[in-house]
Nucleic acid binder design. Structure first.
Length: 436
DNA sequence: TCTCCTAACACTTTTGAATTGT
DNA sequence: AACAATTCAAAAGTGTTAGGAG
């Protein structure tokens, strides 16, 4: 069976988004449809990657703008129901590890971002229903700022501390199984645990770039793919879950979050109370170091097999044993936009999903002077095809920031596309144990 | 002085190749 | 010979911490 990962093991999975053009409109008039085309794009270059996705493509109807994010989604506010942009009627998404997310959200989720890129924990893991089993879809994830503020930790709580930094180029992470059939996606939950966040604006690996001390929210997009590089696609559905809002940090600020992470993340097992890397044991090690060589390894911290935090229960079975009572989160009623000839392409959506959703006007404008990092190590054959996305709909803050540096459309997850996949077995690999 | 960031560290889990058994 | 199960080492993912930059 066709799969880009098999055909191109070195391909990347995340797609950098192109800058929009200034002057975006908040509606989405049919006249703008042409704006989503890329006159200078040699689409045939991409056909090798996503060709033959759907034999009978049909023109996408114009999707309505994504409802605006609330200005604040802190733990103190009651989370509104997930909202979705929809031109895929009947399709719904539910957050599989919702309870875990809620635990973190109640405290105020923080996500570490590092120069090298750090995974999200908890990761976004969703199950999808209502897809056409035969059709092919792309699963995407991006992270957008929630508001226009920078935050600081005040010992007990987070509070706004000035204006947000200028927005960075949007990047989208494409699930490595994409494109896959609806049956494939519905077979088991879809995990985005390999997504990495970075604070390096020159990140060459294609990780999602965030500012530290800012509030963000992940979004998941489902694109019915026809041909990625044509102007035809089969529709799009975008979802967000209020409990997945987080503040990006370079070091944890809230000790309660640290404890939750240690308790829930298997990789942090060593820091649990009974782990060999727990504080007590670390202190003891330091003491012994100062006093002299260690005679014998100690079991002071107890067995490592002692049951740990919530994440233990997700190891090797969380996906399969997902709680059946976690019914799909209700979403907004699917809208049926009027047909639109020459509508936006799947490619355009990949390049700039925000343009299809609209972006809250209170969000900071993208930094117009931001220069995209070159990718010295990856002069991919596609790198020459630089594109600029035409303005999207939806009162986007983008339109206030003129595009200076266009992005290569294939700069997926940084650097010219293609880039390495995270490796076999990721995400929907039935053969590997899901971590989260 | 304070806030934020970085890199090194020790620990854990994951992954895949090699080996062994059926 | 083919397949499955097991073993093992390397790679990758964790939070902690000391030190540095602004």
């Amino acid at each position: 069976m066709y799969h880009p990962r098999e055909l191109y093991p070195s391909l990347g999975t995340g797609y950098r988004l192109g800058h929009p053009q200034p002057g975006a409109d908040s509606s989405f008039p049919p006249a703008l449809a042409e704006g989503y085309r890329y006159p200078d794009l040699d689409t045939s270059k991409l056909d090798c990657f996503l060709s033959g996705i759907e034999t009978a493509p049909h023109t996408l109807s114009a999707p309505p703008p994504l409802p605006l994010l609330p200005p604040s989604l802190g733990p103190e506010t009651a989370p509104p129901p997930p909202e979705a942009l929809h031109s895929l009627p009947g399709v719904s998404l539910s957050l599989e590890n919702q309870e875990l997310w809620k635990e973190f959200s109640a405290v105020g989720t923080e996500m570490i971002i590092t120069k090298a890129g750090r995974r999200m924990f908890p990761a976004c893991r969703v199950s999808v229903t209502g897809l056409d089993p035969e059709a092919r879809y792309l699963f995407l994830l991006d992270v957008v700022p929630v508001d226009g503020a920078r935050y600081r930790w005040q010992g007990q709580h987070w509070e706004p501390s000035g204006k947000a930094e200028p927005r960075l180029p949007d990047r989208v992470y494409i699930h490595p199984d994409s494109p896959a059939t609806g049956a494939h996606w519905m077979r088991q939950p879809v995990s985005f645990h390999r997504v990495k966040l970075t604070n390096s604006t020159l990140d060459p690996h294609g990780h999602l770039i965030l500012h530290s001390m800012h509030k963000y929210q992940p979004r998941i997009h489902l694109v019915r793919a026809t041909q990625l590089c044509s102007q035809h696609w089969g529709g799009v559905a975008s979802f967000r879950f209020p409990e997945t809002t987080f503040i990006s940090v370079t070091a944890y600020q809230n000790p309660r979050i640290t404890q939750l992470k240690i308790a829930a993340n298997p990789f942090a097992k060593g820091f649990r109370e009974n782990g060999r890397n727990c504080k007590r044991e670390r202190d003891a090690r330091v003491k012994r170091k100062l006093q002299g060589p260690e005679p014998v390894a100690t079991e002071a911290c107890g067995s490592a097999d002692t049951p740990g935090g919530p994440c233990d229960s997700t190891l090797g079975g969380d996906i399969r044993d997902s709680d059946p009572e976690q019914a799909p989160v209700p979403r907004e009623a699917a809208s049926t936009p009027a047909p639109l000839c020459g509508g936006p392409s799947a490619e355009a959506y990949l390049l700039h999903p925000a343009a299809f959703h609209g972006v809250p006007s209170h969000l900071p404008a993208r930094n117009p002077s931001f220069a995209e990092a070159p990718d010295p190590g990856r002069p991919a054959p596609y790198s020459a095809a630089f594109l600029e996305l035409q303005p999207g709909p939806g009162g986007s803050a983008y339109h206030t920031a003129p595009s200076v540096t266009p992005f290569a459309p294939h700069l997926i997850q940084g650097g010219p596309f293609p880039l390495p996949y995270p490796g076999p077995g990721g995400y929907l690999d039935m053969g590997s144990k899901p971590m989260y």
